[in-house]
Simulated assay, not measured.
Amino acid sequence: MRILLVEDDAALANALCSYLVAKAFVVDVAPSIAEARAALAAVQYAAVLLDLHLGDGDGLSLLPSVRALRDRPIVIVLTARDQVTDRIRGLDAGADDYLIKPYDPAELLARLRAVERRRSASSSPVLQLGKLEIDLARDLVRKDGIPVTLTQKEWALLRVMATRPDRIHTRENLADALYGFGDEADSNTLEVFISRLRRKLGRSHIQTLRGLGYRLSFSPEDEDE
């Protein structure tokens, strides 16, 4: 899951990035509204974490640009403004949630996942694919009841597909979930991670739709080839 963090406090941005990256998220940081607009035009994000007090204006001015996107990301406002009127203004402007600074990163993570579930029309954080169980709330995968160990990148890739299991995910969409700005990746990296996931989860659980992309399969079969 790729996130845009719009925050001009470098120390706070670095600390939050480190926390979210450890939870298998990919995070890009934009310290200004102008840079955030440029990032949104270049990348399809799953979520935007938006500070309101920025050097070049009010963070809420970014929300029309977010709403105009065809596949609109989740928006969680992060701000020191604690008045009820400020919260109402943010939610009315199009934010999905609102968190007041200082906040516990674990609470942000819980809220991010809760909004993520609402947007994916799923009330449960657990996805069942035959003998495979994917628990998005606890970053846990079980196969036949036995935990499966995934690397950070493997989990980031699986999370995107599991959050929207009804969707065909393009190579570009999945690649965005793996790498942020400045990260290096060669052209066949995505296929390498897909192959590793298939070995660990079972080949039948990830479908390849030629010319379109990849999709999780709800088939109860679990063929390890």
Results as ranks from 00 to 15, higher is better:
Q44Y: 09
A11I: 04
L49W: 02
D166S: 14
V26Y: 01
A93M: 09
W155F: 12
K101N: 04
D82A: 15
T149R: 12
S187Y: 03
R167Q: 03
Q83N: 04
L62V: 13
S124E: 15
D104Y: 04
Y45T: 00
E116V: 00
A177F: 00
F218T: 15
N188H: 14
K200E: 11
F181P: 09
Q83A: 09
V160Y: 00
A38D: 11
A121P: 13
L201V: 08
L174W: 01
R215A: 12
A22C: 07
P31G: 13
A47F: 02
D224W: 11
P64T: 11
S61D: 15
L40N: 09
G55K: 13
E35V: 06
D222P: 10
A47R: 01
Q128W: 00
V48M: 09
F181T: 10
E107M: 14
A110D: 14
G180W: 00
D56M: 15
R2Q: 11
D135S: 08
V84L: 15
R87N: 07
L108W: 01
D144W: 12
I33R: 11
L20I: 02
R67Y: 07
G182I: 10
L158F: 00
L212E: 07
I134F: 03
F181G: 14
L108E: 06
A38R: 12
A162F: 04
F193E: 14
E107C: 06
L16S: 01
D9W: 04
A41V: 09
R87L: 09
I3Y: 02
S217A: 12
T189N: 06
R70T: 12
D183Q: 12
R159V: 01
S204E: 14
P31H: 10
P165E: 06
Q207T: 10
I3F: 05
D51H: 07
L140F: 09
P31Y: 11
L174G: 01
D183P: 06
A106G: 12
R138F: 04
S18H: 08
I134P: 03
G55M: 13
D92T: 12
S204N: 13
V192W: 12
A15H: 05
I76T: 03
Q128A: 14
R70A: 13
F193D: 05
R119D: 10
G202D: 08
L174M: 07
R111E: 07
G202L: 11
V115F: 02
L108H: 03
I206G: 07
R215S: 05
H205Q: 10
S123H: 05
M161L: 05
D166A: 14
P31V: 14
V66Y: 05
R159Y: 01
K101H: 02
G213R: 06
I88W: 13
R167K: 03
A11Y: 01
G90F: 02
T163F: 00
P220W: 04
S18L: 08
R113V: 02
D71S: 15
L108M: 06
I74D: 04
T151I: 09
S65Y: 05
S219Y: 04
L112W: 00
L140W: 04
V77F: 08
F193S: 03
T208W: 09
R138Q: 13
L209Y: 07
P31F: 11
E223P: 01
V192C: 14
A47M: 10
K143S: 11
Y19M: 05
S124T: 13
R89Q: 14
